[in-house]
Amino acid sequence: MKYLGIELPKPKVGVFGFTGCEGCQLQLSNNEENLKDLFSLIEVVDFRLISSDKLGPYDIAFVEGSITTDHEAEALKAIRVQAKLLVAMGACACLGGVNHLRERFDLDEAMSEVYGKHKIVSGKVRRLADVVPVDIELPGCPISKTEFEWLVRQLIMGSEPQFPRYPVCVECKQRLNTCVMDMGILCLGPITRAGCNAICPRNHAGCWGCRGPVEEANYESLAEILREHGFSEEHIAERVSFFNAFAGAPFLPMLEDS
């Protein structure tokens, strides 16, 4: 394909999924009107969810899900060897995501509770970056197809993708939403990286932090606002840990004990 008279590269793409819900891969089938254009920019050579064809090596690998078994770790390493560029896709791949909630429990206990004496292979929940070097993290639970399309355009044009460096609150204000905290709804918008167009606050659910922390997040200020609004520590702790997005962050001192 030519753009402004310049021939654009048409990279070969593979899409892969590990431990997760395949919701991010599913998003790729959305924005149906653009599918034909998207497939004119990239050549999909390996995408099991939608295709039986395996058409050889790929340049870019989009990978969804967390890594929870050695078998998955080996498969991811094999993908890394082949891919020139590896994109972690979605909260499970980038952060551990909701999978991380089971790390609150002993794995053997979880296995025997669900499967009894039956032997099951599983292990610690790992982000892709815990196993192989990751070039780009496409955030969200699920990812946004529009952002995926934008990323593909950036990669083909050879420009380094710049994700928003401001918090969800900026986009929320741009949409003229009433602040959900004033409606009594807990929200992590002030410390979460934007790019979702504040979809959860817009729908009166508040932000859960699925896109990970914004740079230079002001945790102390958020702690103050949450205290002012009288949200319970248990509910704050639950929300902060939901996607494992703020692990290791110098977070609210009041949560340290919980």
């Binding site: 431990t19 997760g20 819900c21 599913l26 669900v114 292979v121 639970c141």
Partner: peptide, 27 residues
């Protein structure tokens, strides 16, 4: 590979449950 959702639900507030439950399946 299993994710042990039944275990993940334990100890959570009922308000969080529908949000976590939706993550069982993207479709």
């Amino acid at each position: 590979t299993p994710r042990f959702f039944e275990k993940m639900f334990q100890g959570l507030s009922v308000e969080v449950v529908p949000l976590l439950a939706s993550r069982v399946c993207g479709i």
